[in-house]
Design a binder for these strands. Structure first.
Length: 599
DNA sequence: AGACTCACG
DNA sequence: ACGTACGTGAGTCTC
């Protein structure tokens, strides 16, 4: 049972502040009226620093003046007091919006839970309390109700919110102790305190800063796309001799395979019938003129709805920028994910893709800088596997795909044809996924027999890589998990499945995770280093996007060269591998027109 | 809510 | 005989 004291007068608040100032650490939990930190207003904050007892500062109370609330600033900004919380990135952002810079060491129970079990369905504090403390704590729905009669949390009586919020803060305090021990036990504490925790303010600032968008450009092209879509669909309806909903795969399937009777041999199937995915339709190219039109329609329609129409709606009217979320506790490998909107899948390549990227602009007097890690996954493979041949190639600065093809077919590098290089590139990528002959054949446009021979030769050339892949799979079977260079883990219970297909899937995940995850760890380290040093290089420069192996910045025209040089250097120095880490930098007025920058 | 499709690394 | 290449998020349709 948690006793939560309601703080609803200046006297009570002053006493609480004095108590907080004496703590080595405390939990805080901010209650706001909105999911988005930009719109959110604080209506209460709970604190906890001893088990069984919590405090709830009722910001709605008329007896607490804004001036008195400001007294909390010194507490939050005190470097010597450790801050505990669940989802500190959000709290950081809310405080920042209120002019407070959260400082001091931190412990985030959401991130701890994520590292201990990446891939969990949720990291809801109530679920964690149930699982780890064996206690059922008050749920939000217990206060707000559900369905039609639902009310919002700010509308609930402060006494009830206090009990709810205080209980969560108190549960967080107890979870900190449990998770700290578990992180230690599993060798995750270094990863937690040197990568994930320092990354919190970096991501928070990226989200707060956002990226400037030319909404008018997107809207103009949305109208153009709509007209074009109308033309294409009229042609399709004429050929099909029927009008139907082109966005419905079910209706499309009926038209193609029942009405037009296009042959379906060799086509993939889904749960509900024959697939009409682009991959399948490409097999039907030439079978009917309607196929090209449908592929055309699909591409245009996708870009219009997902980008041209959606992005302008997410531009913040105050900042003129999009403030996406960069999620730290979503992926099973350690990568970030992006949502609302996803800025990690902006189209690339193609005329309309270029237009969309051109809408990601720098403000007046600024330019965009993009820095890409070169072949980071394969460099990680070379380093983790300690394959001397691959290491040598990277140290020599060779074109790795050409080098691979040259060695496999025993021909000089300059004699490698584009086809051979393409096949080598495919397998170099495929290695990190546990690719089989079938997939290689499909991706490289060769026969399965050729692919088999290719793979055999590949592993003769890169014997260390083969051993690494085998050892990784064995490790997954021996321990039930795999890990990155920095100790990040992924548990793979399916590796023990009696169903061969399930076990094989787990094996591929086992191969992929240490590679993708180590690259993600390195990128996070680079982001922390860059965020740390960037203000000294250029006080107005901002890190605005991360796309797995790419970082995007905006910087004042006069600072472009030094920011680019600094970023490239930090990315190169982010980790010490057996091979050099290399980043390429580009710059331009917008993300669509970038020119390589020699530094 | 789940299926399908498709955008990215 | 075969959906066998990993990791994401979002728009749309359908039930």
């Amino acid at each position: 049972m948690v006793a939560t004291a309601i703080v609803d007068s200046q006297e009570k608040l002053n006493i609480l502040i004095k108590k907080l100032a004496k703590q080595r650490a405390f939990v805080f939990n901010i209650e706001t009226d909105d999911q988005s930190f930009f719109a959110a207003k604080i209506f209460g904050i709970s604190f906890c620093f001893e088990e069984g007892k919590a405090y709830y500062v009722d910001f709605k109370s008329p007896f607490i003046s804004p001036f008195a609330k400001g007294g909390l600033r010194g507490i939050f900004e005190d470097q010597k007091i450790k801050k505990y919380g669940h989802n500190l990135k959000y709290n950081f952002e809310i405080l920042h919006k209120n002019g407070i810079n959260l400082a001091g060491a931190m412990f985030d129970t959401m991130i701890a839970a994520y590292l201990l079990n990446p891939g969990a369905r949720t990291y809801d504090i109530g679920d964690l309390a149930a699982a780890e403390l064996g206690e059922k704590i008050i749920q939000k729905e217990d206060l707000t109700g559900e369905g039609r009669k639902k009310i919002t949390l700010p509308e609930v009586a402060p006494e009830k919110v206090a009990a709810y919020s205080g209980e969560r803060a108190e549960a967080t305090l107890r979870l900190v102790k449990i998770f700290e021990d578990k992180l230690k036990e599993n060798g995750l504490l270094k990863l937690f305190s040197e990568i994930e925790i320092p990354l919190i303010p970096v991501l928070a600032k990226m989200e707060i800063d956002g990226v400037k968008i030319d909404a008018a450009l997107l809207e103009k092209n949305s109208k153009r796309a709509e007209k074009e879509l109308k033309k294409i669909s009229e042609k399709i309806f004429k050929l099909a001799k029927i009008k139907f909903n082109l966005d419905s795969p079910i209706q499309l399937r009926q038209v193609l395979f029942e009405k037009l009777k296009i042959k379906t041999v060799g086509l993939g199937r889904g749960k509900t019938g024959i697939s009409t995915a682009a991959e399948e339709l490409l097999k039907l190219k030439g079978a009917h003129p309607i196929i090209d039109l449908i592929l055309n329609y699909r591409e245009l329609s996708k870009l219009r709805s997902t980008y041209l129409l959606a992005l302008p709606k997410l531009v913040n009217p105050v900042t003129g920028r999009i403030h996406a979320n960069f999620n730290q506790t979503v992926t099973t490998t350690g990568r970030l994910s992006s949502s609302n909107p996803n800025l990690q899948n902006i189209p690339v390549g193609g005329d309309l893709a270029e237009v969309i990227r051109k809408a990601f602009v720098a403000p007046r007097g600024f330019k965009i800088i993009a820095a890409d890690y070169s072949h980071i996954d394969l460099r990680v493979v070379a380093s983790l596997s300690d394959d001397q041949n691959m290491i040598r190639a990277f140290r020599a600065g060779a074109d790795i795909h050409r080098e691979t093809a040259s060695q496999i077919w025993n021909i000089p590098p300059e004699k490698v044809t584009p086809e051979l290089r393409k096949a080598a590139k495919t397998i170099n990528f495929g290695v990190t996924y546990g690719m089989g002959a079938r997939a290689l054949a499909l991706a490289a446009g060769i026969t399965i027999d050729e692919a088999r021979l290719f793979i055999t030769k590949y592993f003769t050339v890169y014997e260390g890589v083969r051993n690494f892949l085998e050892e990784t799979k064995q490790k997954a079977r021996d321990f039930g998990y795999v890990e990155t260079f920095f100790g990040r883990r992924r548990y793979l219970p399916e590796i023990y499945s009696p169903v061969p297909q399930i076990a094989a899937e787990a094996e591929r995940m086992a191969i992929n995770m240490p590679v993708q995850g180590t690259a993600a760890d390195i990128m996070k380290l680079a982001m922390i280093k860059i965020a740390d040093g960037l203000p000294k290089i250029s006080p107005t420069a901002r890190m605005i996007l991360q796309v797995h192996d790419e970082l995007v910045f905006e910087a004042a025209n006069a600072d472009i060269e030094k920011v680019a040089r600094f970023v490239k250097k930090m990315m190169g120095e982010a980790a010490k591998l057996e091979v050099p880490l290399v980043a390429e930098v580009e710059t331009g007025e917008n993300w669509g027109e970038m020119k390589r920058l020699e530094t």
